[in-house]
Design a protein around this nucleic acid. Structure first.
Ligand code: FES
Ligand code: FES
Lengths: 141, 141
DNA sequence: CTAATTAAGGATATAAAGGTCCGAAAATCT
DNA sequence: AGATTTTCGGACCTTTATATCCTTAATTAG
């Protein structure tokens, strides 16, 4: 469904939300530990999230990462890493997904995709962080 | 969503259904032409579909491929090529997707996956071939 | 100012997916 | 039987995704 990088990105964002209190920063080591992702690769993804404006970073001692100070949806995270293909492209790989020139499964999958898009677009990081804080939702294993 | 190989497989199966009349066989060239997939790669996928019992093949002149003589769902095709990961694995990459140890987005995505699984499992190739035959659904471009 | 710490970023390595090539095996036709 | 056609199957190549390494730049603390 999502690329590995995107899975990591979602976990990173969720994790950072759960530790976010009055501007506290979390470092790379913390983050990769918390969601069980390889440290060096996690660093790359963090960079991409910063570039896309979803995170803010600060260097030097006491440095680290924090979530940008505005509501962020799952869709924004997914698009930042994987692009819009998951919610735009034809599932059978036609050059364009359109009702004007649909593939044989277009109608069925448009419904599924709208469902997916709806969830991604209306679920905010703040909506799902509570389960992790309470300890009944998990980021690794 | 699906691998390229799986996209091809679905188009192959749909195409073969549309040309299936009293045991006629379609050859590799026909098939790769019809859905715009590279010939050599298409051959590999055809082999896999034969191994999985979704197609029957015959060698030599007048040889080719035909769809096995029973109702086949989209799910069977997808599983034959991509395995069950799309309908089983945790979207955040946890080792196991379970309500006993759920990730933060488990509930939301179980709903989406059930929707997807439902469509795949109840849509038969024969249900969607008509649009292609009538020429208002397309397999390539 | 210097040393220490942390993110940034480029280069490189490894694995997997996507794709090609070619000879062997089976079936058909003459 | 021999030539031809078509699938089968293994080896190989290419591209992309995943992952690591190492140097540089920024920031802080002493
Ligand atoms: S054209 Fe294939 S999903 Fe829309
Ligand atoms: S545990 Fe992540 S989707 Fe079920």
């Amino acid at each position: 469904m999502f690329s590995k990088a995107c899975e990591y990105a979602l976990k990173i964002m969720i994790y950072l939300c759960t530790v976010q209190e009055e501007g506290k920063l979390a470092g790379l080591k913390d983050i990769s530990n918390a969601n069980g992702s390889p440290e060096a690769y996690t660093a790359k993804i963090l960079q991409q999230l910063v570039k896309n404006g979803l995170l803010q970073s600060h260097r030097g001692p006491t440095g680290g990462f924090k979530v940008s100070d505005r509501p962020i949806t799952l869709l924004e995270v997914v698009v930042a890493i994987d692009g819009e293909s998951i919610v735009k492209d034809c599932v059978l790989g036609l050059r364009e997904c359109s009702s004007a020139r649909p593939c044989p499964v277009h109608d069925k999958f448009v419904a599924i995709r709208d469902h997916l898009k709806g969830v991604l677009n209306t679920t905010y990081l703040t909506d799902i962080k509570s389960g992790v804080i309470e300890g009944n939702r998990f980021l690794k294993l």
